[in-house]
Structure formats: structure tokens, C-alpha cells
Design a protein around this nucleic acid. Structure first.
Lengths: 126, 126
DNA sequence: TCCCAATCAGTAATAATTACTATTATGTTT
DNA sequence: AAACATAATAGTAATTATTACTGATTGGGA
């Protein structure tokens, strides 16, 4: 893979962010300083980086995919009300994989675990 | 909620299918016998039925949502190769909810747990 | 039977993402 | 350092999944 300034900027943006950014958000953050940057370039590079493993895709059902600097198998909790995404960790995923393999012959290579609900802030608002 | 012939047909189609159908697939199955049926009607009713709990939405990351007759909190395994969706069951989800609530205050009302990988059939093909 | 809101069909619009194409940048070879 | 091959880009068009809109139809109670 050939170096590109754009890809480098996109990787840094995701890796330096505390939030889980969408492609659009990455674009918006970089566009002011990089006027010729194209949204297509952001999408293409986020896909490349996710495939290659340097960032992690969070394929949020019913919304735009988000990207996360961490790629260490943590899970996500999504608030139906405000769309916030929280991280948490579910232990013993490997054991689950072994169990599933025994049961079905399925070779699992990744998990997307979403817990849907209402976050603390939104509960008090209602 | 008022009765409608279209909604009834859509519910039956999902509930009688062994597979996990997309809105498009439900439409394709019903269209030949119901020439005036509209795709919008299929989407609207699938949403209604899912909200009301008589069918279950499977929001597949990176693809069209699928609908399942079962609504009993089972999980799904998706084959990257052929797109097949398998069912399985993860025990003790309630305990997990309690744990998450204690940890974050998040009120969890549903889980989407996807295990991604390669199914038995596709493994032998490669 | 009359009425009204729920539902429909058909179409247009939207949102997220990918595909296409001509141009530019990168790394390598002379 | 100039020339080359090709990966990557910008900008735009296209695609996919889904929702919104509108005027006609239908279900079910008064």
C-alpha cells in the first residue's frame, strides 16, 4: 500500500478522537484545512484502514457506520434516544467462539454486539 | 390498529419463512399474486409489526435489514461468504443487562449480537 | 348506510455509500 | 534528476436501502 497524505490524516483523526466518528464527521473535521479533500476518499480510506486493522468499524444498525481507534474487541451500547455510543467489554469471547464452532462448524472471526437502550442522561430527561 | 389484507399477507410471509427475509424479498414473494402491492407498504408494515413485537428485526450491519418470525431474543451468525444467517442462543442476557445497568446506568432493552465468520459449507468450498 | 381515520399505491425524496473517470502523487528505475 | 508505472485522488454520477408525500381506497364503528 502506497503512502498518502489523505490516508494519514484520516487515520490520525479517528485515532485521536475520543468519540466514534462517522465518515461524514471525519470529512467535516478535515475539510476546512484540506479544501480539496473528497468525501469518497474518506470512505475509501476508512474501509482500507478497517480492513487492515488499524481502526475498527462499528456498523451501527439503522445509521451511518462509525469508526473507532480501538480494535481490541470491545462492544458498544447505543442510546435510542440521543444516538450516543458507549464502550464496554464482554469477557470470554474466545470461549464463545469455541462453543459456536463446536455447535455449528462456523468459524467466527469477529463480533458485533450492540446493546440498545436508553442512556442515563436521556432517562432523566423523560 | 386497523386490519389490512396487505399487513396480514406480510406477517404470514415472514412467519412462514424458514429464512430471514429482507423487505425486498417479502415484496418479491407477494407481488406476483398481489399486483398492486407497493414496496412502501411492505416497509411500513414490517416496521409496524416489528415495533408491535409480532416479528423481529435483524439489523444486519452493511446490508438490508432482515425480518424473523422469532422474537425470543436469539442471536445471529452471518457468513461473510454466502450471506447466510444462522440462529443461536446466548444464555444469561438478563444478567448481562443488570451488569451493564450497574456499570453505566444504561437501561438496555434489546441486544443485537452478530458473530461474523465463515459457515461450514463455505469453508469446504475454499 | 354514512362517515372518518387508517391504510394503500405510486412516486419522489433522502441518506449512506460505492463506482467511475480524468488528473495527480508516490516510489522505483534508469 | 528525468522518466515511468501505478496507486491514490477529486469530483461527480450512480446505487441501495429506506422514508416521506399525496391523493385514492378501505375497514369498522355510529
Amino acid at each position: 500500500m502506497k503512502y498518502s497524505r489523505q490516508r494519514e490524516l484520516i487515520r490520525q483523526t479517528v485515532q485521536q478522537s475520543e468519540e466514534h466518528l462517522t465518515a461524514e464527521q471525519v470529512y467535516e473535521r478535515l475539510k476546512p484545512e484540506n479544501t480539496t479533500l473528497s468525501l469518497g476518499t474518506v470512505y475509501r480510506n476508512l474501509n482500507l484502514l478497517a480492513e487492515q486493522g488499524s481502526i475498527c468499524r462499528i456498523p451501527v444498525p439503522g445509521g451511518a457506520d462509525r469508526f473507532d481507534r480501538n480494535n481490541d474487541g470491545h462492544q458498544h451500547m447505543i442510546c435510542r434516544c440521543c444516538g450516543k455510543v458507549l464502550d464496554w467489554r464482554l469477557p470470554d469471547m474466545q470461549e464463545l467462539d469455541r462453543y459456536l464452532h463446536q455447535l455449528t462448524g462456523f468459524e467466527v472471526d469477529r463480533h458485533d454486539f450492540f446493546a440498545w437502550g436508553t442512556c442515563k442522561d436521556c432517562q432523566t430527561e423523560i
